Simulated assay, not measured.
Amino acid sequence: MKTVKLSQSSDLMPTLGLGTWQAPPEVIEPAVYKALDLGYRHIDTAFNYNNEEAIGTAVKKWLKDGKGTREDLFITTKLPHIGNRASDVKKFLKLQLERLQLDYIDLYLIHVPFGFFYNTDTLTPLIKSDGEYDLDVETDHIAIWKVMEECQKDGLIRNLGLSNFNEQQIKKIIDAAIIRPQVLQVELHAYFQQVELRKFCTDHEIVVTAYAPLGSPGAKDHFVNKYNYSPDAFPDLLGHPKVKEISKNHNKTTAQVLLRFLIQENIVVIPKSTSEARIKENSEIYDFEISKEEINELRKLDKGENGRIFNFLFWKGVERHPEYPFKLC
């Protein structure tokens, strides 16, 4: 598995990881074990995915079975939106370490830049009578980051990063940080290539990780059924004629081409799958190279902001939070 060196810790982060969003515990546990057997060493999860316990069980079993060591693995998880305050960082990190059955997290990200109030019994966001989420508008990124730095110093986290933050929000943390962000995880695929944000990250030695690197085909049913999204809002990137043409040139699937494209653009990818065949297929992206001409053709697919799928407006009222990260037309 190829890796990239993180700028401050010099830890090696695998450029391919297993994404686990929308994967229920009973499904993700065997999928993670199988992925590790197939050579994956990078597993990405989050408090909000509600599957940390299952992932922890799979990792523990894999280690107990003598398949590898803890040092071989790179586990990423995230501080949830309901924990976005300095006073809650250690509470959630401790809970997540317990769920994952780990002594430390390889990479801990602030999942989103905005915060919600929550039910302390269920650890779920509070929703007001009008259906809007109860926003904690006092979200203070610097205060949160300082506590995360303490946790890193205490050995509970090896690397710190951000997810879904915009350039201005990242810069504010960089300017105040002792330990600068090492990774930024954002939606990124051929239809939404985030070129300016990537350049900013390169200039600041921040590794970019792409979630939804295939255009998140699995998100369609979720958003249509749960949040009444229009099916037309979801692109068929895997079926694009140009992607199909390039895949034929290399005798690869369109998914493999889209992942390889991002890898060659120096982006870490975390495609989600629970199918053994797809998990294996997604890992077979290091034995071919897309030509410069093909790279340029794929770059032309970028739709800019019109290509964004995840704007978080399914959390009703979130756009009124002062730290909502995206511009709305």
Rank of each mutant, 00 (worst) to 15 (best):
F261K: 11
D221S: 12
T202Y: 15
C151T: 09
D203P: 00
D203T: 14
E265C: 10
G68E: 08
T120H: 11
Q182P: 04
I246C: 01
V186R: 05
T76E: 04
L237S: 10
V208L: 15
A212W: 06
R41Q: 07
S283H: 08
S283G: 01
F223V: 02
L6A: 08
F192A: 13
I179E: 15
V183I: 07
T202C: 15
P213N: 07
P322F: 03
V137H: 00
I263M: 04
Q8R: 12
W315D: 04
T120D: 12
H111Q: 11
F314L: 14
K272L: 02
H189E: 15
T139G: 00
A190T: 09
L36K: 03
E276R: 01
P325C: 07
E305T: 10
N166V: 01
R260I: 01
A31T: 05
Q169R: 07
L162P: 08
D136M: 09
L109N: 08
L162G: 07
K64S: 15
L197R: 05
D154N: 15
T45S: 12
K60A: 02
N164C: 12
H321Y: 03
K220W: 05
L259Y: 03
G215I: 02
K90A: 15
S216F: 00
K199H: 13
F288W: 04
Y40W: 12
D72H: 11
N249E: 14
I170L: 08
E196N: 07
R70A: 07
I43N: 01
V186L: 13
N296P: 04
L79K: 04
F165E: 04
I263S: 02
M148G: 06
L107Y: 04
F117Y: 11
R158H: 07
L328A: 10
N51T: 02
V243M: 06
E265W: 12
K94G: 08
K67A: 07
Y104V: 00
W145T: 11
A277H: 05
Q185D: 14
F92N: 06
Y191R: 11
L126F: 04
C329H: 12
K316N: 08
Y229R: 10
L160K: 09
M1Q: 08
G155W: 11
M1F: 08
Y324R: 01
A219M: 10
R260E: 09
N311Q: 13
K153E: 15
I28M: 01
K199C: 06
D175Y: 03
A210L: 09
N166T: 03
Y191S: 13
P325I: 00
A58D: 00
E187A: 15
F92C: 00
E52N: 02
L63G: 00
N84L: 12
S10Y: 14
T77P: 01
K280R: 08
D121S: 11
E323T: 15
T57E: 03
I246K: 00
K280A: 06
K292L: 09
P181N: 12
K172M: 04
G66S: 11
S291L: 10
L184T: 03
S163N: 09
P181G: 13
